[in-house]
Computed example of a mutant assay.
Amino acid sequence: MIENRPVFTFFAHAVLLVGLAIVIFPIYLAFVASTQDSSTFLGGVVPLLPSSHMLETYGRILGSGFGSIPVWRMIANSMVMALGIAIGKIAISIISAFAIVYFRFPFRTLAFWLIFITLMLPVEVRILPTYSVAAGLDLLNTYQGLILPVIASATATFLFRQFFMTIPDELLEAALLDRASPMQFFKDIMLPLSRTNIAALFVILFIYGWNQYLWPLIITTDQNMTTIVVGIKQMVNVADGDPQWQLVMGTAILAMVPPVLVVLFFQRWFIKGLTEPEK
């Protein structure tokens, strides 16, 4: 039993508040910078309080945007990519794990370990052959090209496999007695039991897809297919003149909104999926 000592409680809360301040302060500073005018940055000092240019800055960002593509289009491209990657990875991984655990076929264990070994081959290692295949299939400058080459996930397959192995065999025997088909067993029993794991993985994989930079940078040459992460980098790289940092910071703040909303919406399921998987 853990003793409830006021001193320890105060110390724990103080540490948490300090950690929260360290995390929040850069975000707050970026928000304050987005509310300033362009001349403020020439002095080299950013104020600690917001300015009156906030509506002007965010109106320009959401309206005309920056450059040839509006910010809302870049956010939409990132949303499609992140959702496609998250949903696709979960769908492929859960079916693969189900087949590995509940079907008996030659080299079943070898197939799993071959999938698991791909964890040592990130996108950066296989970028050239992946790009060559995508170009050969005419996937450049398409949503399919952004999603399909990075849709497989050995991590999700491993996690689903480990979870399925904890399911009692009595459930499978009951399904066999009821003459349920494999897909009925998967749909009616395994999917409901896996919903917390699916929610937790969805949050992780959505953020993974949203933060992708290298692959969208290579696979897309059309400005209309630019994602928000690549777009922010392009805003900083200005050929003539200084970057408009208030627009860059404002776009960065807007780019954080979708992942934060996803985390907040799935927070209860995310924590439950990581700590208390249902069986």
Rank of each mutant, 00 (worst) to 15 (best):
I271T: 11
V133S: 01
V230N: 12
S39A: 15
T57K: 05
F202L: 11
V32R: 07
V248K: 10
D37T: 05
P129N: 03
D138E: 15
L110I: 12
V46K: 04
T226L: 10
T251L: 03
I228K: 01
D240M: 06
L20T: 13
T130I: 03
G44N: 11
I232E: 06
Y131D: 09
E170T: 03
S38K: 12
R161D: 05
D37A: 04
I204N: 05
L119V: 06
V71Q: 05
V101F: 13
V238L: 11
N211K: 12
S34I: 00
H13K: 10
D138K: 07
I22G: 01
K279Y: 10
A154P: 00
G67N: 11
R268F: 00
G59I: 03
F158Q: 04
F103S: 11
R126I: 15
S93Y: 01
F186L: 07
V257I: 15
T275F: 09
L171I: 13
N197T: 02
W113R: 02
L172Q: 11
A86P: 00
W269F: 13
M81I: 03
G88D: 07
L20V: 04
A156C: 07
P277L: 10
Q244T: 03
T35S: 10
L62W: 15
T142R: 08
L140T: 14
V80M: 13
L176C: 02
P243K: 09
G231K: 07
L62A: 09
M183N: 04
W210V: 03
E124V: 00
F163R: 05
I127T: 05
E278F: 09
V46L: 10
I69T: 15
V248L: 13
D222G: 00
V263W: 08
F31G: 01
L214Q: 06
A134C: 04
I90G: 02
